[in-house]
Design a protein around this nucleic acid. Structure first.
Length: 871
RNA sequence: GGGCGAUUAACUCAGUUGGUUCAGAGUGCCUCCUUUACACGGAGGAAGUCGGGGGUUCGAGUCCCUCAUCGCCCACCA
């Protein structure tokens, strides 16, 4: 059969993925083996696969595939998140295109549209993951709004309410005027913007005096309840008991005194708008001021504003500035850098708003989650995120969990008799509870809270609810699969998700939800911007896979992705991955093209096999260590070098027979064994290629995906070192060929003086790779020859007629100078009493060895130079 | 404003308790080579005052101080 020169990923990928599915390798049921579990960070149903997902899921797949080979019962649970705000926004937009307003629909009608949308688009991203080779247990695919999942969420809500951890109250919250819902603090991003600071003067009632304040939001003067100054501010003490008049509307408000006000800032006078600023609210509360909410939910001005009613807050800002200026109230404006909060989802500028919402008390509740991370029961990789985590946890605030949306789990609070309510799993239970208060209540009288829960209120129990551990805490699956092993996700959702899962884990399982958290970096584009769905700057991963193969893309992502480091994405990395695929493919092509016969095994092959067996064991050890430290890119690099350098450049170059000659059966057999081992090591990183070659080597039942992960063994380090030295000898010969332009077909003789190292065993290899006719041991150096040194052995290639004496002497002189300098530094170190007295014995012995070594090199070099100069 | 982390070759990063020739890897770059698995390749090469300055030590990329630059997280100063 003829095998193409380049590897074609298309042939392997779909074929093997289907095969693995058919064989059921991805599916997991509890059994006697130890479980290895990962729950996927459920991507939003609104999302399509982007580079962040690629990185994340490749890492998860690597961990799962390796664990599977190590004999664990692996279970990778996939699924999607209903993403309440994002999805609702998409559905609303889609309906709007059809001319349908959300307000035209009943809740049920809207939800039916939303589920239609979810059914159409929601599975897309999971389908894309299969292209990447993700070995998820697809039979376990979950959605955060599946009936059982929602039921678990509601159960948790009711439970926490009963425990007194959930309460309802009027608080200052973050209002998103675009989505028209409350947000948690975490959903608000503070951005620096250039804005203006407006200086506005207020007339003081009953005097000609004016009082000037500074504000970035002049439109909010319509909601002012007071002007506040610092009681220690001598400029304003005389205003005690006076009133100010709000410009344009003429409303009279008191001048109040509070030390909160910074005398240095602006004019030292602060307008107080309790409805639209958290600080003003607190001052207003303290001084018992009127709260005037001048904004509607959509960010337009309300009737309470009196002016500009129905106009947008930003339009009003400009308009009111003009009007104030016209009437002489605007003193001046200044350029000003300040920070505004915007909605993480809609990018709308957040309004602080006083509103009735549901909250979860976090302070005490989160304590175990903090402790168990700080004492490494749960390990973060890299550990620097422990700091960030701690900082957030100790400053944790109550979590606003209600959202004024329809898409999500509706809050199970049922109202009756006006403001009275009960919290219960079902309306029937609620009725029973309500009847205790008022026996006349009927089920029709109960009205469920319109709001839904924050999306993260469902995803924080994800590792438990996917195994039904909330509804049935003692079921077999949860006890088997929980706690999960690795959580692999981005640091951007450390608080949104990771921290809260840990909290929920200790609350509902009394146990950690996962043992290790691997926080990836963010994938950035070439301008250093975060790649994300909202920016739309991510290359299409499916196109990349088509171009470079899934394995190539996986390798490309992993090579540059040490834990926690951002990676600027460069397509060249995928190219490197593809080239690597091809390298392995061609190594395989070479081997399968060999003609096997009973001829004698060459000495060089014998030595190469022994060496490579040691080398592979050493590398397996390195790879295992890297994995245990979650240094996945290092594990891959070890594998990469083992294959490219050790296997291809050395092992195969040594063992491959001369052109047209057959290979002996022992070497052939051994080579196949080595190749198989290598493919196993490669499998977690490059599943398709490894499976493809595994089966092309020979027909067999067993698939590599479930083969055993190779174990490391005793390593003969002396042998490895000898081989290293040997490679330097070969490099020396190649160097001389290159410098002197000696073609490979010209066979050379290599002469060695007192060649004492054990690498005599490796002479056969040197002869083969150096294209030598022989290696001779000599006692005196030849009169003129090219030469090089490896350790303290001197090698010669005698070709007197072509040698460039001047260049050769120059080269030797350079080497001599280096060694002299080196000797000097070693000697001075050894003369230093401080060093000799305080350095450990081993270090001193090493220095002495170095000195002896340098001395002997200097001696050799000096005499060599002399002999050249004489000739 | 508070906290955390980083700064090592053109790029992306290793460098474990200070001590072997410790200044490394991969990519890229330069030179040569279409040789018989692979040009998605081979052989060789150049390349860094380890951000600046100070200190501790016999010895510092590694520990301490300081400055600079960058990044991240948190935060209610108009």
């Amino acid at each position: 059969m003829s095998i193409p020169k380049t590897y074609n990923p298309r042939i392997a990928e779909d074929k093997w993925y289907r095969h693995w599915l058919e064989k059921g390798y991805f599916y997991s049921k509890p059994d006697k083996r130890e479980a290895f579990t990962i729950v996927i960070p459920p991507p939003n149903i609104t999302g399509v696969l982007h580079m962040g997902h690629m990185l994340n899921n490749t890492l998860q797949d690597v961990m799962i595939r390796r664990a599977r080979m190590m004999g664990y019962n692996t279970c990778w649970v996939p699924g999607t998140d209903h993403a309440s705000i994002a999805t609702e926004a998409k559905v609303v937009a889609k309906l709007a295109k059809k001319g349908i307003q959300k307000s035209d629909l009943t809740r049920e009608e809207f939800l039916s549209h939303a589920f239609d949308w979810k059914n159409k688009h929601g599975g897309m991203i999971l389908k894309q993951l299969t292209k990447l080779g993700a070995s998820c247990d697809w039979e376990r695919t979950k959605f955060t709004m599946d009936d059982d999942m929602s039921e678990s969420v509601i159960k948790v809500f009711v439970d926490l309410y009963k425990k007194g951890l959930i309460y309802r109250g009027v608080r200052m919250i973050n209002w998103d005027p675009s989505a028209q819902t409350a947000l948690s603090d975490e959903e608000v991003i503070h951005k620096e913007v250039s804005s203006k600071l407006y200086y506005i003067s207020y007339n003081i009632e009953g005097s000609g005096e004016k009082l000037t304040i500074a504000t970035t939001r002049p439109e909010t003067i319509l909601g002012d309840s007071a002007i506040c100054v610092n009681p220690n501010d001598k400029r304003y003490t005389h205003l005690k008991g006076k009133n100010a008049i709000i410009p344009l509307i003429g409303k009279i408000i008191p001048v109040i005194f509070d030390e909160y006000v910074d005398m240095e800032f602006g004019t030292g006078a602060l307008k107080i708008t309790p409805a639209h600023d958290i600080n003003d609210y607190q001052i207003g509360d303290k001084h018992d001021l009127e709260i005037i909410d001048i904004l509607n939910d959509d960010g337009t001005l309300s009737k309470s504003a009196q002016l500009y009613v129905g106009k947008d807050r930003f339009a009003v800002r400009e308009e009111i500035a003009l009007d104030l200026e016209k009437d002489g109230f605007l003193v001046k404006t200044e350029e000003y850098q300040n920070k505004v909060g915007v909605s993480e989802r809609t990018n709308a500028v957040i309004e602080p708003k006083l509103s009735m919402q549901w909250f979860c008390k976090m302070k005490e509740f989160s304590k175990p989650a903090l402790d168990h991370v700080m004492n490494d029961d749960i390990k973060f990789h890299p550990s620097k995120f422990k700091n960030t985590y701690r900082h957030w946890m100790v400053n944790i605030k109550d979590w606003c969990i209600s959202r004024q949306l329809w898409w999500g789990q509706q809050i199970p609070a049922f109202f009756y008799d006006g403001n009275k309510f009960v919290v219960a799993q079902t309306k029937e239970e609620a009725l029973t509870l309500a009847k205790k208060e008022n026996p006349n209540i009927t089920i029709e009288d109960l009205k469920q809270d319109e709001d839904v829960l924050d999306t993260w209120f469902s995803s924080w129990i994800w590792p438990i609810s996917v195994f039904d551990g909330i509804r049935n805490p003692d079921n077999k699956e949860i006890n088997y699969y929980y706690p999960t092993n690795d959580l692999i996700t981005g640091p951007d959702i450390l608080f949104f998700w990771v921290a809260r899962m840990i909290i929920a884990g200790y609350e509902y399982r009394k146990e950690l939800p996962f043992k290790d958290v691997y926080l990836t970096g963010l994938v950035r584009d070439k301008q250093g911007r975060k790649m994300s769905k909202s920016l739309g700057n991510s290359p299409d991963p499916i196109e990349l896979i088509e171009k470079y193969g899934a394995d190539g893309v996986r390798v490309g992502m992993l090579l540059c992705a040490p834990a926690g480091n951002d990676l600027p994405f460069d397509e060249g990395l995928c190219e490197q991955g593809r080239n690597f695929s091809n390298k392995i493919w061609n190594a395989f092509r070479l081997i399968q093209g060999w003609e096997v016969s009973d001829c004698e095994q060459p000495e060089s092959a014998k030595q190469a096999i022994i060496w490579f067996e040691n080398k592979i064991n050493k590398t397996i050890n390195e790879i295992d260590v890297s994995f245990s430290k979650y240094r996945i890119s290092e594990a891959l690099m070890s594998t990469y070098r083992l294959i490219w350098d050790d296997f291809c450049s050395w092992y195969l170059e040594i063992t491959k027979p001369n052109y047209g000659s057959p290979i002996d059966s022992i070497t052939y057999q051994k080579t196949i064994e080595q190749l198989e081992k290598i493919l196993k090591l490669l499998h977690p990183f490059m599943p398709f290629l490894s499976e493809e070659i595994w089966h092309l080597i020979k027909e067999r039942e067993e698939d590599i995906i479930i083969s055993n992960w190779p174990k490391d063994a005793e390593i003969n380090n002396v042998l490895l070192e000898d081989f290293e030295n040997m490679t330097e000898v070969v490099a020396g010969i190649r160097n001389i060929r290159k410098e002197q332009n000696i073609p490979n077909k010209d066979q050379l003789v290599l002469e060695v003086i007192n060649h004492q190292t054990q690498s005599n065993n490796l002479n056969a290899i040197i002869i083969k790779l150096g294209k030598l006719s022989s290696i001779n041991t000599i006692s005196e150096k030849p009169s003129s020859a090219f030469s090089f040194m490896v350790k303290s052995n001197e090698f010669f290639i005698p070709i007197s007629d072509t040698i460039d004496l001047v260049a050769e002497i120059k080269k030797l002189q350079k080497e001599l100078d280096y060694n002299k300098g080196f000797l000097k530094s070693v000697e001075s170190k050894l003369k230093n009493e401080g060093f000799v007295n305080s350095a450990p014995e081993q270090i001193i012995a090493n220095e002495k060895n170095k000195m002896a070594d340098a001395k002997s090199k200097i001696k050799i070099l000096t005499s060599k130079i002399a002999s050249f100069q004489n000739s």
